[in-house]
Design a protein around this nucleic acid. Structure first.
Lengths: 208, 208
DNA sequence: CCTCACAACGCGATATATCGTGTTATCTTT
DNA sequence: AAAGATAACACGATATATCGCGTTGTGAGG
């Protein structure tokens, strides 16, 4: 779906540059890249391991088994290749930074999360209609404990709805303000205070 | 962080019941469970594979390598164990259905808000990219306005973080209570009151 | 009966590897 | 130089396995 973060051949050189800083195993490389992307992008195993295998085939790195890890080390040939293409490396760095910014923007706008929960909701709606059919046909189970539990569950749903409504309303107001550049730090502090108080009130009402 | 979907020992029996329907490999079992959960829950590899190993140790299933897959098959001993504990299985099914419903409800209650905010996010993202284009192409706008905007956007992020934290904390407490059947309607009413007050407080602090 | 060490368990994180798909670069043939 | 085949590549999905943390169940000793 998404365009690749690394363009054709970029990852290969990038891995080489990371290994030039010291020997690492595969998972470590994944984490190193994730870190440089500020956590917004993490290359999958299917991206890293085949590339490392290729690099070893070409003699640019060596592979050493270490317990359940596989440590990769750059060779002289690898360092030569890296030196030869130093100029490209700078371009890749810029290219990667660009991709990161783009990904970060997408994440920030929350589109991914919304789509994900939408899918989950559709799946659960389908499930529920199935369950409902089963429920209307089955026998009647009833005990006071079960009733209390069911009532609690219903109340839970109500409560969560209320919280979400509250959150959504607040977010709307906040976004409005922010768009006009009128959301000050002091407002955020005030918000925190109000939220804290609300929580304490609620806990008191429960009798703790 | 989340409570386990399968309680102590439940997964073991559940896997056995799935294998009674036919031989499967590990990943297939993960997908089968995910399907029954409507996509809202997927057991991790770290949950499935150790359990399968144990079952094989106990002689309740056999393991057969098939290419890069490892196919598990139920044994007579496994079927015996399954028959012996048939009653428990029904309980587990109910327990699992409960967990599924709980997870689905959590997602669902967030969906409306997510959809609503999706529209707002898309709109604001569009506006932002337009602004960015204007910024890079057009003349330089007043820097103080831009600073105020940037500061506001930062404050917005902070505020949303605080809200999410608040929401997640409250939800945790509510779930706890509901699980023990101790969440009364009155508590929900109290919650609504507290939330309303918090909102009014915040708006007052903004000076409306 | 109780408690408290110990085992078993569920689970996310760690770790590795292959496969199939769609895209991009390169070679070949004209 | 253009076009068409082909190789290389990035990536998500498939597939397996171990480790450590926190919780839960259990049994032995008081």
């Amino acid at each position: 779906m998404n365009p690749p973060v690394f363009s054709h051949g970029s990852l290969r050189l990038y891995l080489l540059s990371l290994l030039a800083e010291g020997a690492k195993h595969g998972y470590e490389l994944i984490q190193a890249i994730e870190q440089r992307f500020g956590g917004t992008y993490s290359p999958s195993a299917g991206t890293i391991y085949p590339r490392l295998s290729k690099l070893e085939e070409e003699g640019l790195v060596t592979k050493t088994a270490d317990g359940r890890k596989t440590v990769y080390e750059i060779t002289d040939a690898g360092r030569a290749e890296l030196g030869r293409r130093e100029s490209e490396l700078a371009d890749i760095e810029a290219e990667v930074t660009d991709s990161v910014r783009r990904l970060a923007d997408e994440v920030r706008s929350g589109v991914n999360a919304a789509l994900k929960s939408l899918r989950a909701d559709l799946a659960s709606a389908a499930r529920e209609s199935k369950e409902h059919a089963r429920f209307t046909a089955g026998p009647a189970p009833a005990s006071s404990d079960l009733d209390a539990l069911a009532a609690s569950r219903f109340a839970l749903r109500e409560a969560e709805l209320a919280i979400n409504e509250f959150r959504s309303a607040l977010r709307g107001e906040l976004r409005d303000l922010a768009q006009r550049g009128k959301l000050a730090d002091s407002a955020v502090t005030g918000l925190r205070t109000a939220l804290d108080r609300a929580r304490r009130e609620f806990q008191d009402a429960l009798g703790r």
